[in-house]
Design a protein around this nucleic acid. Structure first.
Lengths: 197, 197
DNA sequence: CAGATGTTATAACACTGTTATGTTTCTCAA
DNA sequence: TTGAGAAACATAACAGTGTTATAACATCTG
């Protein structure tokens, strides 16, 4: 039946996500995924076409949830949306480090996402652009290319998150990471504020 | 002799860097490194202890050259040093993408740098902190924790460079990447400027 | 010179992604 | 119901890669 197929697909993906959460990207081994999902190695090939298929599924699932988390975070006045978005970005990455690495770094050697998956990734970026435009409309950000401003903010978020995920700390106290991140967001907001502000 | 040992070490490292430049981190295969260096597979184990030893050598070599490039770039008035440093950061990463990936991402699955190598990496960060302090002294950046400001700037540089290395472009024109990056640097500088400026 | 130490060359091993193969099970029309 | 075709399973084999073993060779030391 098609329903059991789909259930097994789900079980395999869930097993892969479990291994990913527990041991990072390098814990994604086809045999282990199959064992964890309670099926044979071949099932992974029947359902996903191989390891890259699993990784692509994780990639797509990750961006789906990531985009959703970002959209849900933006629910206040435009003045607050930048910080809300930035903090949600970091939070999601810290809670889903394995997925984040697969989505934004080449943690799995041979894997490159399909064109459709890449488009989906850019759709996630659209949330940032929309937020920038809302803030521009409210006079909190300078006029100009919203894509460019969103890109710079994405860059700062991504860079700080990556450094944090890599375990590189600015100070001895790990508690400071969040404060440093928030301060970076504020600085970026000031940097892109209208001239007269 | 010890000199021939050292020469062979150098030949192996050079071969690894050549493969890295040509095919990226996943082109670093022990057999290929040995063949390119004109020695046997075992020589890699005698000289470097295995693949991780080679990767660590690339890591250390990379941070050595990276730090040097950053230091050489800072040679103007404090007002210009931020942009000089940021542009040198991006330029080095684009010219040494393989090394940059090994240094800042986990491009080689099992590899983790030794504590000494990690200290060396933080030494590179010190160039940023020194520059921030010079700019603070000249009144171009707000007073406060120089480490924190440098960290945010590093984050933005790292994030934008990683996105660029991953081939993700903000617009259709690849020429815009440098302009976007430079604008991001300016925004960060404005964001951390003293209040009255 | 003789032994110890290190290096070379070759091969074998372990792990992982992938493919092949024979068997079983299921589906569904006759 | 039944039998043919298809799908899936279980097992094994294959290919690539990091690593280790082993024996022959070289080099240095006393």
């Amino acid at each position: 039946m098609s329903s059991t197929s789909s259930e097994q697909q789900h079980a395999i993906l869930a097993a892969a996500l479990k291994l990913l959460a527990h041991g990072g990207p390098q814990a994604l081994r086809v045999r282990d995924i199959a064992t964890t999902a309670g099926c044979t190695t071949m099932a992974v090939y029947s359902r996903f076409g191989g390891k890259d298929g699993i990784v692509e599924a994780i990639y797509v699932d990750g961006f789906h949830r990531f985009t959703q988390a970002l959209e849900e975070a933006v629910n206040g006045r435009p003045a607050d949306q930048g910080e809300q978005l930035g903090m949600a970005y970091r939070m999601w990455a810290l809670e889903n480090p394995g997925s984040y690495q697969i989505m934004f770094t080449q943690a799995v050697p041979g894997f490159t996402p399909s064109p459709e998956a890449t488009l989906m990734a850019l759709g996630s970026f659209q949330v940032l652009v929309d937020t920038v435009q809302a803030q521009q409309g409210a006079g909190h950000l300078r006029q100009g290319d919203a894509t460019q401003i969103a890109w710079a903010q994405w860059g700062m978020s991504h860079g700080l998150v990556m450094l944090e995920l890599a375990g590189i700390q600015p100070t001895e106290e790990p508690v400071a990471a969040e404060a440093v991140y928030r301060d970076g967001l504020h600085a970026a907001a000031r940097g892109f504020a209208p001239d007269q502000a």
